[in-house]
Design a protein around this nucleic acid. Structure first.
Lengths: 214, 214
DNA sequence: CCGTTAACACCTAGGTGCCAAGAT
DNA sequence: ATCTTGGCACCTAGGTGTTAACGG
């Protein structure tokens, strides 16, 4: 994933369909978790992306696909735009937090995600990605240009579509697949089985698994 | 103000600075109230525009000017985009509601504004406007073109700036003036004097008073 | 006759990868 | 060497008044 100082979107965006919620007031958080690869060289407190539709009822969240397409990544540790701060050349795994609204707690881009019974944390291993400042692999570049509407200016309309795209399609990843969610090991959290999540837009992430660099 | 079926913004937008709030959780609503001019020919239930920053603390609201520039007006009574539905050739007065968040009440574009001690309703007589589908007065047109960045394509950069603009400037309206707020006569509401509001962008509205049509 | 509509040219605002230049 | 930066051309997305055609 390309990151800059000014902040760029994550493409493709995390898109999720959720069910099994109580039609009560809920949030959806989205955050990023730093994965392995070196010791603690991250002095920056982690941030979360609060979905702009928050605060909304469970009924509202379940009605349609929840898209995090306005989320922006940056490598600027002094960022004051509320973007998710990442380090280049590191591997990350996006996480989605479903947080039940209780009492008068405030939403915040900087505050840590409240933990406890009211919090569900989901993560999909196929959405793991590596941050870069310039693409290392020409096939990833091609894929981004073909899929991202904002990159249409670089499209080579007459090219033959063979390559990784056809390969990945043969794996059946390009169609949304129903995923059971994976609760993380948060102390005191019940591993309730009522919530299910459908992950979409997996295609490009799959490339990140096929190719070691992105 | 121009209204269409698809929905157009109100220009200039309502911009307000508020003080005297308790730094607790608050909303800011914005709605429109139909004024006089004929009997009840409005079978459509009135809508309100919920400021996108809602829900936020009083501290947040007081920190900067609150702009309602994304509010859209429409003359389509079957509108399903949540826009404010108005009738053409009628006079309206925008209102701002400051609503204290209590319990678990939900925000809604259609629900009526809750009334009681926790609600303050403000209105500025100088922001009264008349709805049209085509401008009736060439000076209003000129003003809109000169002030609205999206209408820059119609600007006649070499024109002489004399006319109503100079006239209104002589009245001192083009500078933000501190306005004491006017609480409406809502039963059971205390006329507390702690809240003050600074209304901005009054210039164009003033034209609506100088000119009978807009 | 007059109010309304929809397509239009022209803007603002912002999201792409590219590429030459800079930084380490 | 390798990674990073900032300006760029090229897009999407959407906000203007205009204008001709429409409709009561």
């Amino acid at each position: 994933m390309i990151i800059t100082k000014a902040g760029r979107r994550m493409f493709p965006a995390m898109r999720v369909k959720i069910s099994g919620l109580d039609p009560r007031q809920q949030y959806v958080y989205h955050s990023s978790k730093w994965m392995a690869a070196g010791n603690a060289d991250s002095p920056v407190p982690p941030r979360v992306y609060v979905h702009p539709d928050s605060l909304a009822s469970g009924e509202t969240w379940m009605r349609q696909v929840i898209s995090f397409d306005k989320l922006k990544l940056t490598n600027n540790e002094l960022d004051d735009q509320g973007h998710i701060i990442l380090h280049s050349m590191h591997k990350y795994q996006p996480r989605v937090h479903v947080i039940q609204k209780e009492r008068g707690e405030e939403l915040s881009h900087v505050r840590a995600v409240p933990q406890g019974d009211g919090t569900r944390t989901l993560s999909f291993p196929e959405t793991v990605f590596t941050t870069v400042t310039a693409y290392q692999n020409q096939q990833i570049t091609k894929l981004k240009i073909d899929r991202n509407p904002f990159a249409k200016g670089f499209r080579d309309s007459g090219r033959n579509r063979m390559g990784l795209e056809a390969l990945v399609e043969s794996y059946g990843f390009w169609r949304p697949s129903l995923r059971s969610l994976m609760f993380e090991d948060i102390p005191g959290m019940k591993q309730g089985d009522k919530v299910s999540v459908r992950s979409r837009s997996l295609l490009c992430y799959c490339y990140n698994n096929f190719l070691s660099s992105c």
